[in-house]
């Protein structure tokens, strides 16, 4: 369990002259669940996109299993097979049924046998409670169902690392749970995951380690108990305070009717 899967060293990402990620260093061990939190615009999503080489990087190195991930690399698609990504906006393919969404990449990219892939896809769909939706099209599903299909689609490629980019941010509150439950189950299976989320209680439950990002840098990196109970920096304290509410209710007063 101590083998390093992903290693990021001195990562720098710029959009023109704007520094988005500034000297990020991170090591993710096999089976580790990392939750990245921080204010919007701090570079959380960009970090995930860099790991998947969807964004070119301006400095530093990212490597998976010791192999560098580089947007110019010829074996980029081979590396991407090993990294599953789930997006905030689901991004199911609208012209394909649920089953074909899941089967497309294993069939076309990994050239696996159709029967075998279909069996696995149906098993995975069953596990997230969506086996009977296999023949449906994405537009016929709710947001939570679409996101569970998106997770299954990533899983069917047998990735070594899963990236979740605010996967519940676009969902209605009652659908958030069904998606988070799936991710919790994956964590229990020992999957290596990097999760960007705003669900603090979920972060606390699922994470082995919390990364707090602000202004493009990792400000804190700590186990969840430590981070949520005793944040070291003021910036983190301030951020966590935005999730608690002070009671503002005043005791109910009856309005006296004015009498002449």
């Amino acid at each position: 369990m101590t083998e390093t899967l992903l290693k990021i060293e001195h990562l720098v990402k710029k959009f023109d002259d704007n520094l988005i990620l500034d000297d990020i260093n991170l090591e993710v061990k096999k089976g580790e669940v990392i939750v990245v939190i921080g204010p919007s615009g701090c570079g959380k999503s960009t970090l995930l996109r860099c790991i998947n080489a969807l964004e070119p990087i301006q400095g530093g190195t990212i490597s998976l299993d010791g192999e560098p991930i580089d947007d110019k690399s010829r074996s980029l698609s081979v590396l991407r097979e090993k990294i599953g990504m789930v997006f905030q906006s689901y991004e199911l393919f609208p012209h394909l049924s649920v089953l074909n969404n899941v089967m497309l990449a294993p069939l076309k990219v990994q050239k696996r046998k159709k029967e075998e892939v279909k069996e696995e896809a149906l098993t995975l769909l069953e596990r997230v409670g969506l086996k009977e939706k296999a023949g449906s099209f994405p537009r016929q599903l709710s947001g939570g169902q679409k996101q569970r299909v998106a997770i299954v689609r990533a899983l069917c490629m047998h990735p070594e690392l899963l990236l979740f980019d605010e996967v519940t941010a676009a969902l209605d509150p009652e659908m958030v749970r069904e998606v988070l439950d799936v991710i919790l189950k994956l964590a229990a299976q020992g999957r290596t995951m990097i999760i960007v989320t705003h669900e603090m209680q979920f972060a606390q439950a699922v994470a082995d380690r919390i990364l707090f990002l602000d202004g493009g840098s990792i400000i804190e990196s700590a186990p969840p108990e430590e981070f949520f109970e005793h944040p070291k920096t003021d910036r983190a304290k301030q951020f966590l305070n935005t999730f608690t509410f002070e009671a503002v209710k005043t005791p109910h007063k009856t309005i006296k009717e004015e009498e002449d």
Partner: peptide, 12 residues
């Protein structure tokens, strides 16, 4: 982002 989602599944 549809394209990115396909790329992230390892498609060329």
């Amino acid at each position: 982002i549809q394209m990115e989602s396909a790329l992230s599944l390892g498609m060329n």
